[in-house]
């Protein structure tokens, strides 16, 4: 049963990385909004790039999620 407990603890530790993803998304969207408010004309042009970066940042959190899943279920 110790292994089981360690698994849960490990999975819990793994998802701490989501904090980093959250901070990253906050920085990303905050800066995008900041820029978009300053220069709304250019906002449209960089929306695609922003979304791409969103996906890249989100991937970090998702990798943590996958690690947690692997710890729990594999």
């Amino acid at each position: 049963m110790e292994v089981e407990a360690a698994r849960y603890i490990g999975a819990g530790l793994a998802v701490i990385a989501l904090g980093g993803a959250g901070a990253g998304l906050g920085v990303l969207f905050g800066n995008y909004l900041n820029a978009a408010v300053r220069n709304p004309a250019a906002a449209e042009k960089w929306f695609g790039r922003m979304m791409m970066t969103f996906a890249l940042v989100e991937a970090t959190g998702l990798i943590a999620f996958v690690v947690a899943m692997i710890i729990l279920f594999v």
Binding site: E58, A59, F65, V66, M69
Partner: peptide, 12 residues
């Protein structure tokens, strides 16, 4: 990174 990104997004 390319494969894990897509895979993890879908699974999650």
């Amino acid at each position: 990174s390319l494969s894990v990104r897509l895979f993890a997004n879908m699974v999650a």
